[in-house]
Simulated assay, not measured.
Amino acid sequence: MTRSRVPSALFCLFALAAAVDLLSLAVGFEPGHAVVKPLLMPLLAAWAALRGAPRLLVAALLCGWGGDTLLLFDADAAFLAGMACFAAGHVCYLVLFTRVGRSRTGALLLVPCYAVALITTVVLLRPDLPAELRLPVAVYSTLLTAMAYTAGTRLGPVAGVGGALFLLSDTLIATGVADWPQPPRPDLWIMLTYLAAQFLLVRGALGERRPARERADSLPVAAGPG
């Protein structure tokens, strides 16, 4: 395999692993999900790294891998540790999006939308969450919402959709912990929205870096003193 084909091969492996994972969840084959889930983010991170992804982007995906793996264990300590991993990933995303992105027209219009979504979710979920999870979920939700908002307002619509899907995926998890009514096969919808979110965030970040380099390359060189 030539070096130029490695990124394509990695992406195909990621797509295949994602399809196997989603199919396993759709048919209720838990062993398939348990085996494939920990492979997803490392494959996506490797693909992104070979596409020139910055370290913060790779770090965010590896934090997601840590969270994915920990959430496979049915224990409160594992859930909190997994939440901490995802929170660290959101911090990486926030710093990255702020560095490589640029402020976009209409960004302020999204502030009330995300603020209302955050406040409504936290307030409604709080009574039904275990007492020890109320504060961590509120803090995590704030960080996640900030990441989703920043993705859309600094990187554009592709990353913005990714951030919104990440918010939706984690809201489904939180409502499950709160014992709210769930759609059929909730784990399938959680993983579907999560995988789409991570992929779109990566595409948005990679797409934002490329024009920046091209603009830098096209700047005229200042003439020295004559």
Results as ranks from 00 to 15, higher is better:
Pro184Glu: 14
Gly204His: 08
Leu16Trp: 11
Arg210Phe: 13
Ala164Pro: 04
Gly89Lys: 03
Arg215Leu: 15
Gly204Val: 11
Thr2Tyr: 00
Pro38Gly: 11
Gly160Asn: 12
Val158Thr: 15
Ala222Trp: 11
Met191Asn: 09
Leu72Gly: 14
Asp21Ser: 14
Gly152Asn: 10
Ile119Gly: 00
Trp47Thr: 00
Pro225Tyr: 12
Glu30Lys: 14
Arg203Cys: 14
Arg104Ile: 00
Leu56His: 12
Leu110His: 09
Ser24Leu: 10
Leu118Ser: 05
Glu208Arg: 15
Leu206Gly: 09
Ser218Leu: 15
Val27Trp: 08
Leu206Asn: 08
Ala164Phe: 12
Pro31Gly: 11
Thr69Ile: 10
Gly67Ser: 06
Arg185Leu: 15
Gly32Cys: 07
Pro31Thr: 13
Leu50Trp: 12
Ala46Asn: 00
Ile119Tyr: 03
Ala48Arg: 00
Pro225Gln: 11
Ala9Asp: 00
Leu108Ala: 15
Arg185Ser: 15
Asp179Gly: 08
Asp187Gly: 12
Arg213Thr: 06
Ala19Arg: 02
Leu40Thr: 12
Glu214Gly: 07
Ile119Ser: 03
Trp180Met: 09
Leu16Asp: 01
Gly32Trp: 10
Ala77Trp: 05
Cys12Pro: 00
Leu10Ser: 02
Met41Gly: 00
Ile190Asp: 02
Tyr140Pro: 01
Leu143His: 01
Leu61Pro: 05
Pro38Asp: 08
Gly176Asn: 08
Tyr93Thr: 04
Val221Trp: 05
Asp68Gln: 09
Leu61Ala: 02
Thr69Leu: 15
Leu192Cys: 12
Asp187Val: 12
Gly28Met: 13
Leu165Gln: 03
Pro42His: 07
Arg209Ser: 13
Val27Thr: 09
Arg185Cys: 09
Ala60Leu: 06
Pro225His: 13
Val95His: 07
Leu167Thr: 04
Ala174Phe: 11
Ala87Asn: 12
Ala159Asn: 05
Gly64Val: 04
Gly32Gln: 06
Leu56Met: 12
Lys37His: 13
Ala77Asp: 09
Leu118Arg: 07
Gly52Tyr: 00
Ala15Asp: 02
Ala45Leu: 03
Leu71Gln: 14
Pro54Trp: 04
Ala151Asn: 03
Val6Ala: 03
Leu16Asn: 01
Leu133Cys: 06
Leu70Arg: 06
Glu30Gly: 04
Val116Cys: 13
Leu72Pro: 10
Thr121Val: 14
Leu125Gly: 09
Ala59Ile: 00
Phe166Trp: 07
Leu13Ala: 15
Asp128Glu: 15
Asp170Ser: 00
Leu96Gly: 05
Thr175Trp: 08
Val35Lys: 02
Arg209His: 02
Ser8Leu: 11
Ala84Asn: 03
Arg104Thr: 03
Ala18Thr: 15
Phe199Arg: 13
Gly207His: 11
Gly162Leu: 06
Ala164Ser: 04
Ala18Trp: 04
Leu44Pro: 02
Phe73Arg: 12
Ala87Gln: 04
Val100Ala: 10
Pro220Val: 15
Val202Thr: 13
Pro38Lys: 00
Ala53Arg: 00
Gly162Gln: 02
Tyr140Ile: 02
Gly52Ser: 06
Gly224Cys: 03
Ala196Arg: 05
Ala45Met: 07
Thr142Pro: 01
Leu25Met: 11
Gly207Lys: 11
Cys85Phe: 14
Gly204Ser: 12
Leu108Lys: 05
Leu25Glu: 13
His90Lys: 08
Gly89Ile: 08
Trp65Thr: 14
Glu214Ile: 14
Ala15Ser: 07
Pro225Val: 11
